[in-house]
């Protein structure tokens, strides 16, 4: 007895149709997948791929890490992705997953809820993050004490739907993250546009803030949220004399001229294209892609056309 399947309706003889259907897995593939020998040759083949339920190695000689579980003395993968090994620790890194926070990460989030002395922030993680009233800088200086009146007017600082940039401060016992904005770099976002990409595409960089020529600032949140906004002049940065402390929690955009608007739209489209082609986003890649787009003189909408975007990705990844 043989369980088979063929195209519908079957063309010519079951066995032959099964064997000739090249797009389906054949018996040979099966053997190739079933290699469950131990990990001695791990280094030679650094990006070993795996699927849920695949036995990786013996639990006697290795420790299980994220993306794996132990059953009957075997370490078994629970996600589809690449196998990574550090000494005796085996982990599987999924390619598409929600953001896994780490302390010190820079994230961009959106306020979802205002609660007593805290805000709930959506940061593309498994639970909403918490931003305590005590971990934000209030207008009037770093040293200012939080008063009861501040608790009553929390919506004056952050309201539902507001975007902010923050740093992961700590974790609660259930794994939820606590954020802080106690630096002049962090706080409410305005004058720009949010783009969302898979978090794995944003790598840890020396700095996650940078400016492109033509007056566009970028903030790459490690949670896959990217903020593209109008450039802030050096003299108006935090701590300089032109800095407007009142504007920190402002809900109004500055005047943005048409050229800047176009540049912002162009950058967001570039990010969308690169994300759709799974190109990891770094400062260099983005700068190169932007220069390419300007060089080609493609209009903002035209970038999204398939041939143009393919050319863009090819230009960026080949160099």
């Amino acid at each position: 007895m043989q369980i088979t399947f063929t195209s519908f309706p079957s063309q010519s003889g079951l066995r032959s149709a099964y064997a000739s259907a090249t797009k389906h897995a054949t018996e040979d593939d099966e053997d190739a997948y079933m290699d469950v020998e131990p990990f001695d040759d791990f280094e030679s083949d650094s990006s070993r791929l795996t699927c849920p339920g695949e036995t990786l190695t013996s639990a006697q000689s290795f420790m299980r890490g994220h993306g794996t579980y132990v059953d009957n003395d075997d370490v078994i993968s629970s996600v589809a992705g690449t196998v990574e090994r550090v000494n005796k620790l085996i982990t599987v890194r999924a390619l598409r997953t929600r953001y896994n926070p780490e302390v010190g990460d820079l994230v961009i989030g959106r306020i979802t809820e205002v609660q007593p002395r805290r805000w709930k922030v959506d940061a593309n993680s498994r639970q909403d993050a918490v931003l305590m009233l005590s971990s934000v800088n209030l207008p009037g200086g770093v040293q200012r004490r939080k008063l009861e009146s501040d608790e009553l007017q929390m919506r004056n600082f952050f309201e539902e739907g507001d975007l902010l940039v923050a740093e992961v401060q700590a974790f609660f016992s259930d794994g939820a993250m606590s954020l802080h904005t106690r630096s002049l770099k962090y706080g409410k976002l305005r004058n720009g546009q949010l783009v969302t990409v898979p978090p794995i595409l944003v790598r840890r960089l020396k700095s996650h803030f940078f400016s492109l020529p033509s007056g566009v600032d970028l903030i790459l949140g490690l949670n896959g949220y990217i903020w593209v906004s109008k450039h802030v002049k050096e003299s108006e940065r935090e701590g300089e004399e032109g800095f407007d402390a009142e504007a920190v929690y402002s809900n109004r955009n500055d005047d943005i001229d048409d050229a800047t608007r176009t540049a912002i739209a162009r950058v967001t489209n570039i990010i969308r294209i690169l994300a759709a082609h799974s190109v990891p986003l770094t400062d260099v890649v983005l700068l190169e892609a932007y220069e390419w787009a300007v060089e080609q003189d493609a209009d903002v909408k035209g970038l999204l056309q398939e041939d143009v975007s393919d050319a863009l990705v090819a230009a960026v990844t080949s160099g």
Partner: peptide, 15 residues
Amino acid sequence: VDAMGAGVRTSDFAE
């Protein structure tokens, strides 16, 4: 994995 491997480049001089 292939798509991601194609474009990994960073520079220390980026800033």
